[in-house]
Design a protein around this nucleic acid. Structure first.
Lengths: 413, 413
DNA sequence: AAGACTTTTTTCGAGCCTCGAAAAAATAGT
DNA sequence: ACTATTTTTTCGAGGCTCGAAAAAAGTCTT
């Protein structure tokens, strides 16, 4: 049962609304905030005064907002970059990277290193991560301590974003990263699926295109998906969900890395395309060592002539297209962004994808099916993590009357 | 952007909360409502006094609440059955039925008739419906006028629940039932998918089992689905969505009623089972005239010996099972209720369903997969419509300070 | 049977919050 | 310098929820 609304919740929610409006708009005036939130000018005035006093927002210098209009000039409100910091970390195949981000979303520091994720021991994996984050946060104590960590992983997390349940990059399972990092660093942590973070980032990058309903599909060694429906990130009931790569394309079909058969990934993952292009059986054990260079070369050959390579891409497109079509039967069509190295070969996939979608329930609204490609996934994932962490701070910490950094504003005391 | 919370929204939302608590609990005391909503006793006292004055709630007679405890006895609050009425209508193959329901959910009047939905003209279909609802509402004027109509149809509606976009029971498309009924009867109307209403009803019938996440699957001539995720009815971005029957089971597979190939329905719909059992080609035109008696007989023969009939049910179960498995890859497992005549043959389907699910991503959590069967769908659909209509009245009308029936309480004037 | 005890419900004043209207502030045009 | 215009702040009114205390309505005990 939904909880009742207390009187003090009201202020909290409206504070959150004002912060969100500033984060979204960049440098909005109070009047602009009033109109986007629907709250009265007086309320916005009161709330923004509080937020400025607390060091969460800051007023822009006069003239920063091009006006040239008559009347009292608007004063833009911005996020105070020094109000807080957050940490983002991305754990992917053979690579671990992390960064400190300030409250305005700017990069403060970063670090990354290669890591043999497939063979490293469980303890070493954990301690490498802990060590990197300790280095990043060293010297940040007291009010300078980061307020949130978001760790993105390839694979499945639990619905509460606390445990990595399974990942293709390591044999180790059920690693409670959130608990570990909270204990070691004392900073609240969320563990998120990388594709979900991609979807979050798309929404911030291009809100016009990626608004209420859209899909991000990661094409790489495996196939991942992040799905936003009615403005909310779609997650499973127990896990991060959205395992599009393991929707069944052909029952009893090709052997998948997950051990099952006929998954979309078993036709469209890098290893599957490679396997098909090299004339190996669909039932042969998935090859782990397919490198990005191999795929680039494969794509070149597929473009050069209509041989087994092109056929392999066709099969991949067919699997993806039928999968999308089935998804559209459930959720109706929505724009799709293909992300990752595989998106660089999208020209080879697209005809087969479109042909397959046309054979499905999604085909009837083919006008609404827009594709977009973004070959480089890491920046997207990072940005998604950063926004995830920052909106957490916005809504869960700064929306209460939290004294952001009292020392910065000692003059008001 | 989410709208700001006004001060007067607060009362409205808390009124809605109190009404919802009473509808859910049956005869709760004020103290009980306070604890389920988290609001204070004083607030509940004030709100319920208002609601009683407005004739929306009523106090139970003393002693109706078994207490036997010490202390001042609790006074149960109930919905005032006379506070309002709503209309539910269900349009299904060859049958149209409608009923008037009072505010407490009790049946006031009902009517149903057979109708050759497959051949009737568009205008006749509309006027039959309008006529029936006019008869039901005749004499109910002024404050006795029903406050809401919910019409359930087999097929696809738009996301705003105003238009029947497509239905298997009639060749006519895009009938704006909501607009038509609102104009003819002057009562706000919603057009809903029948399976979605089944899901709504399950939640009211057995909240322990069907709580936050579950699936209702209708097995009849076609295959429908109603899905509740995180406590919300799942709908598509443009339509009622959840067209589980048209998820692709086998690309380029059996011919479906929808004209496409390989849909789950083309294996598991009545016509598909019938077609397979009679040794017809999977690509032969779907038979429209398969009657429930035919299916009953088919099931008998399938139970009697392991012939083509049993094989047909196996194929159906295989399609459903793979479909469920793929769905579980996206949303994680959830309890499933199989509804409709096809559920009466669930014993024939279940082994193949379970075997197929085990081959998919859903298989890993096989412990969480609970099946339930409900052969009679019409009462479920009706109940879902009724609850849908009543909660609309609760939240959209009675949550504002709406004078429910001033005449009933003239004494307070 | 009267008083003690217990639990539910109502009453009442305090404290917030939002809102609208009016005032103040700050600039461009004339 | 003065007017027009637009933004922002101020101020009082009205509502809402809350906690504490009081009132109500029984059961239990002696």
């Amino acid at each position: 049962m939904t909880a009742g609304i207390r009187h003090d919740d009201l202020r909290r929610r409206n504070r959150g609304l004002v912060i969100a409006a500033v984060r979204r708009a960049g440098l909005p005036s109070r009047t602009e905030i009033a109109s986007t939130t629907g709250l009265s000018h007086s309320t916005i005035s009161a709330i923004s005064a509080d937020l400025i006093n607390e060091g969460i927002l800051a007023e822009a210098k006069a003239g920063e907002l091009a006006s040239a209009r008559r009347g009292r000039p608007q004063v833009g409100l911005s996020l105070n970059a020094d109000a807080a910091t957050v940490i983002v970390a991305v754990l992917s195949l053979n690579e671990l990277s992390a960064a400190t981000i300030n409250y305005a979303g700017g990069l403060v520091a970063e670090e990354s290193r290669t890591l043999a994720t497939a063979t490293i021991s469980r303890d070493d994996l954990i301690s490498e991560l802990v060590a990197m984050l300790c280095r990043l946060t060293s010297g940040m104590e007291g009010s300078a301590r980061p307020l949130r960590i978001v760790l993105a992983i390839q694979g499945i997390t639990d619905a509460d974003a606390r445990v990595m349940l399974w990942s293709p990059i390591t044999p180790h399972r059920d690693i409670p990263f959130a608990e570990i990092l909270e204990r070691k660093l004392g900073i609240p942590t969320a563990v998120e699926n990388d594709c979900n973070m991609m979807a979050v980032a798309l929404r911030w990058r291009d809100p016009a295109r990626y608004r209420a309903d859209f899909i991000a599909i990661l094409l790489s060694h495996g196939i991942g998906m992040g799905l936003v429906l009615k403005g909310n990130l779609f997650t499973g009931t127990r896990s991060s969900g959205g395992e599009f790569g393991h929707v069944i394309h052909r029952p009893e079909g090709a052997l998948c890395r997950c051990g099952r058969r006929g998954c979309i990934e078993a036709y469209a993952g890098d290893y599957a395309i490679w396997r098909n292009a090299h004339g190996k059986s669909e039932f042969s054990t998935p090859e782990d060592g397919v490198r990005p260079e191999d795929m680039k070369e494969l794509a070149e050959r597929a473009r050069a002539s209509d041989g087994p390579e092109r056929e392999a891409y066709r099969k991949a497109g067919n699997a993806i297209g039928y999968g999308i079509g089935s998804l559209f039967a459930l959720i109706d069509p929505a724009p799709i962004a293909f992300v990752g190295a595989g998106a660089a070969a999208f020209d080879l996939l697209e005809p087969a994808i479109r042909a397959a979608v046309a054979e499905t329930a999604g085909g009837q609204h083919s006008d609404a099916i827009a594709f977009d490609t973004i070959p480089d996934e890491l920046p997207l994932i990072r940005q998604g993590c950063a926004m995830r962490a920052l909106t957490y701070v916005d809504q869960e910490i700064f929306s209460d009357g939290y004294p952001a950094s009292p020392l910065l504003h000692a003059d008001i005391a």
